[in-house]
Design a protein around this nucleic acid. Structure first.
Length: 510
RNA sequence: GCUCCGGUGGUGUAGCCCGGCCAAGCAUAGGGGCCUUUCGAGCCCCAGACCCGGGUUCAAAUCCCGGCCGGAGCACCA
């Protein structure tokens, strides 16, 4: 981390800052070395591109300020949480943070500490009891609809003025399992006529009758979001808590909880949400598509989960650059895939080896070939070359190219020869090596050696609901490709190897 | 209905808090050119925008008022 940037960010004269830095404005009340931020995902599904912002914004600030960054699992609704999601989050977040270290020099590229909220449950029960004893919380046994309508009308229910002893007794019963789910909850006593709805005696603990992925049925009373987030942030030393802006109305509730408990307060900062152009991003939309078998699980390359994007060949580096340039802005951002693809191209272009892949292959016989061998550069910026052996003087070319050829036209078979078109038949093309080999400005097309080519399939995701599968041949060296390799298929686009047997690539973008 | 955010080139956005350095930045898509025995890539260039109406001011994308349009939130989920 360059020292001068840190100084600029921390400095008070923000107007002197350069445009580049403006996207990451200094944090209020932030002292270098003392900032603690966190990301707090609920392990209720696979992280999506939306989570990337929630991860990167606090991470970038933590590193810019030489502070600490925490990963906290908000596992307080066991009904929807699963162990596999904890792991998916760890995996995908790691990939992103490691990339942030490589791309932006924000080091170390990992979280400094992991916190699992459910381990704090006993502590949270203590705090709940404290609130009850102070007369700031009461157990309400009204049915949900009644609570809703009273809240709307600004009416107080009969439980609100129960004596402390009664509340303590009911609270014990909640903990001991004498109430069923939905029969009782603990509410904060604030003001039932408060203009901010979320402030009208919000529920802070409720019963969830489902096994917890870590603790099984050890607990059945869980805190709600407002209680857990404020208490946890305070307890774990967070100085600047980021969340997406739909939580703005909750700031007041959370501050109230902290004040009543006498816990340390901290900065709460909201940022805009991420959506993706034309692609359903929310789990609500994706889940049915998976169930219906339209999508191949949460890592389907058409799904904007991090796993899906990675599988499609969108690199963590590109995502990091993208979000770094997007900044911590409060406005909702719509990502268009083209921009992300452009970012990815910048990452891949300098490193991805080039290969020739021929979709819809057509045989082309080449007359006059003297050497049954071609040499092609692995990458235009590199010296190393790859030799392609031909078993006979014939190659495959793409049907689309074959159709565009006219008799007498000259084209270049990349790395092999410049040829003149003699005849284009329905299933065979006849070519002849030209007299003049160096002709500038002619079309260069890719090919694969007939009889020695590698069968390759390329999946091209076209929408969240569909894809096209291109079948064809690649040059022999493609046999050596391994799952996860990124390549550029000449004149087609960048692609990632998805499986080796059969060799299948997923097209990332052109 | 209530509350809170927004409306900037074709698209996605920066700038707005703290008015002048903004005849508005970036990216993407578009047009043109260059390179070429890699490429549908890259490089260079071009064109293109402050929702509307009032007000304040020497000066408004930026502040104020009104309108129109769009989004989000209003759980015993997070």
């Amino acid at each position: 981390m360059p020292e001068d940037r840190l100084r600029e960010l921390a400095g008070p004269e923000k107007r002197e800052k350069k445009k580049e830095e403006r996207k990451w404005p200094p944090l209020d009340k932030a002292e270098p070395g003392k900032v603690v931020t966190r990301v707090a995902p609920e392990p209720n599904g696979y992280p999506t591109i939306g989570h990337a912002k929630g991860l990167l914004v606090p991470f970038i600030y933590a590193r810019l300020y030489n502070g600490k960054f925490l990963l906290r699992f908000e596992d307080t609704n066991p009904r929807v949480e699963r162990l596999e999601y904890f792991d998916a989050i760890r995996e995908d977040f790691s990939a992103l943070l490691e990339a942030a270290e490589r791309e932006l020099g924000l080091s170390p590229g990992r979280w400094d500490q992991e916190v699992i909220e459910s381990y704090y449950l006993p502590k949270m029960y203590e705090l709940a009891e404290q609130l009850i004893r102070q007369g700031d919380a009461y157990v309400c046994t009204c049915p949900a609809e009644k609570v809703r309508s009273y809240r709307k009308e600004g009416k107080e229910c009969e439980h609100r003025d129960q004596p402390v002893e009664k509340n303590l007794e009911l609270w014990e019963k909640m903990l001991e399992g004498e109430f069923k789910e939905g029969e009782a909850h603990l509410r904060l006593k604030t003001d039932m006529r408060h203009p901010n709805y979320t402030m009208r005696d919000p529920g802070i603990f409720r019963i969830v009758d489902a096994p917890h992925p870590i603790h099984g049925d050890r607990y059945r009373v869980y805190p709600t979001y407002d209680f857990s987030i404020s208490v946890m942030d305070s307890l774990t030393g967070v100085t600047h808590a980021f969340r997406s802006k739909e939580f703005e109305p909750h700031v007041e509730v959370q501050r109230t909880i902290l004040r009543k408990l006498g816990l340390r307060e901290y900065e709460m900062i909201q940022f805009g949400r991420i959506t993706m152009e034309g692609i359903p991003i929310s789990k609500r939309y994706i889940r049915p598509l998976i169930k219906a078998g339209i999508l191949d699980g949460w890592s389907d390359p058409r799904v904007p989960t991090l796993k899906g994007l990675f599988r499609r060949g969108i690199t963590p580096e590109a995502l990091v650059r993208f979000f770094y340039e997007l900044g911590p802005s409060k406005v909702d951002a719509t990502i268009n895939f083209e921009s992300l693809a452009a970012m990815n191209r910048k990452v891949l272009d300098p490193v991805a080896p080039r290969y020739m892949f021929v979709p819809d292959p057509v045989k082309a016989v080449v007359e006059g070939l003297e050497v049954l061998k071609a040499e092609v550069p692995v990458h235009p910026d590199r010296e190393d070359r790859r030799v392609i052996e031909l078993t006979e003087p014939s190659v495959y070319i793409a049907l689309k190219d074959a159709k565009s050829l006219r008799e007498g036209q000259e084209v270049r078979l990349r790395g092999l020869a410049t040829v003149k078109v003699r005849h284009v038949g329905p299933d065979e093309v006849s070519l002849r090596v030209s007299e003049e080999q160096r002709i500038s400005g002619i079309q260069i097309i890719q090919w694969a050696p007939y009889g020695n080519a590698t069968p390759v399939r390329v999946m091209n995701p076209t929408s969240p609901y569909s894809y096209e599968m291109l079948g064809g041949y690649g040059e022999p060296a493609m046999r050596e490709l391994r799952k996860g390799d990124m390549v550029q298929l000449l004149r087609i686009g960048f692609a990632r190897v998805d499986s080796e047997e059969p060799l299948t690539l997923i097209l990332s973008h052109r």
